[in-house]
Every structure is written in C-alpha cells, then in structure tokens.
C-alpha cells in the first residue's frame, strides 16, 4: 500500500513537473512575440539627426583594388588586425567595402559606459574618442558590423570617423576620394535610402541599428 502510494506520488510529481516545464516554456515563448510586433512598429526610416550622411557601395563598379582600405590605413595608422575599413570578399567573387556605418541607432554609443561615442547632430557621423575609452570591450559585442576594434598597443578602441575633420574643412573622406571607379561614394541618406539598403549577402538585419550605408549588388 505505502509502496504503491509512493510510486503514484512520484508519477504524479513527474507529470506535475512536466506540466510546469511546459508552462514555463510557453511563458518563455509568448511575450517575445509581442515584443517583436512592437519592434516592427517602431522600425524607422526617419533620421534621428538633422541630417544623416552615409556610404554607398556599388558592387558592379568595384574592381577590388583595395585602395579605399589602403589609404585609410596609411592615414590613420590602425593596426592591421584592428581595421577601420575592410574589403570583404567570398569565393563567389562577391565583395563589399565596409567601415563603421554611422548608424541612426548606434548600439555602440548606447552601451559605452564612458560616453566615448558621440553622434553629431549636424550630419549624423558617429565619432569615437579613443582618449576616453577604458577598453572594456562592451561596444565590440554591441556593434553588429564589427566596426570598433581594440588597438593592441593602446588598449583603446578606435574606428572610422568618416574623416570628419576633412569634411568639416570642405573635402570628402579619403576612401571615397581614392576609389578609381566611384564604387564607393557618399551622400545624404534621404537620397541613398531611395536606392537601396544594407540587406546584403548575409549581413545582419538593418533594423538592429539602422546603418547609414547602402550596398547595391551586381
């Protein structure tokens, strides 16, 4: 009798445990769906700053000379395993020249504890001040595009700043200036976003940070 009872008890508790597990799993699944819905509503093409400039990459025009990468490195002397700009390529022959995308919702700026990142109101450029950076590495996880890197020597993060000093003095960024075929150009996102987006060959969902860059596949 007592033996029987115990078996029954444990069976009952197994069923109970299973039910509980199921409920918890269901609870786990429910609200995220709601959150998702909210997210799509929140999705914004509207710029957050007075103006937002961005890059444009036209794959068909790119001859993969890597001038853009080289001039950037020569000018700003970043360590080669902590690049500001990269020419991504795959075996199929596809390519993309990419740096920081000066996102409309920069995840880097949100997480950086020391406020090393600022987004300029005048043109939406995201500038990171290496002299403030403590090197916690938080922004490296936050940025979906692997744009910020820690420079080994200084222990501080740096990344592309759209050559903002050159731009302030009236000329354009180095990479754009040196591109022989005008595959890499820049412009106002109001116009660029009419022509394309950054939903490109495996890149992350642009909704995460609203990058200010478009890539036109060939």
């Amino acid at each position: 009798m007592s033996h029987n009872k115990r078996v029954e008890l444990s069976r009952r508790s197994v069923i109970k445990g299973g039910l509980l597990l199921g409920t918890v799993a269901a609870i786990g699944l429910m609200p995220i769906k709601l959150l998702r819905a909210e997210e799509t509503v929140k999705e914004n093409a509207e710029p957050k700053t007075k103006k937002q400039i961005g890059f444009s990459y036209d794959e068909a025009k790119c001859i993969k000379c890597e001038n853009c990468v080289r001039i950037c490195q020569e000018t700003y002397k970043w360590e080669t395993d902590a690049p500001w700009r990269k020419l991504l390529r795959n075996e199929k022959g596809d390519a993309l020249s990419m740096s920081c995308n000066h996102c409309a919702d920069p995840a880097c700026a949100k997480v950086c504890p020391v406020n090393a990142y600022t987004k300029r109101e005048s043109d939406g450029v995201v500038i990171q001040d290496s002299s403030k950076c403590v090197g916690c590495g938080y922004c490296l996880y936050a940025c979906p595009y692997h744009a910020p890197h820690i420079q080994k020597k200084s222990g501080a993060v740096s990344k592309c700043h759209f050559c903002y000093k050159l731009q302030d003095s009236g000329s354009g960024p180095m990479c754009v200036g040196v591109c022989p075929t005008q595959a890499l150009t820049m412009g106002d996102m109001k116009e660029l976003s009419q022509k394309g987006n950054l939903n490109y060959k495996g890149l992350p969902n642009p909704k995460i940070t609203n990058p200010s860059m478009i890539a036109i596949p060939k």
């Binding site: 504890p113 020391v114 950076c133 222990g155």
Partner: peptide, 20 residues
Amino acid sequence: LGQGLKKPWLIINMFLNFSS
C-alpha cells in the same frame, strides 16, 4: 580593461552614460 588599466583616472568616467 585595456587602456583603463594604464590610465586608471579614466575609470571614473564609467559613471557617465546612463543608457549603458
């Protein structure tokens, strides 16, 4: 930390960004 370890006075700024 990286640079913060070499320049510890920077650490105090970690109180700055309320969205982080």
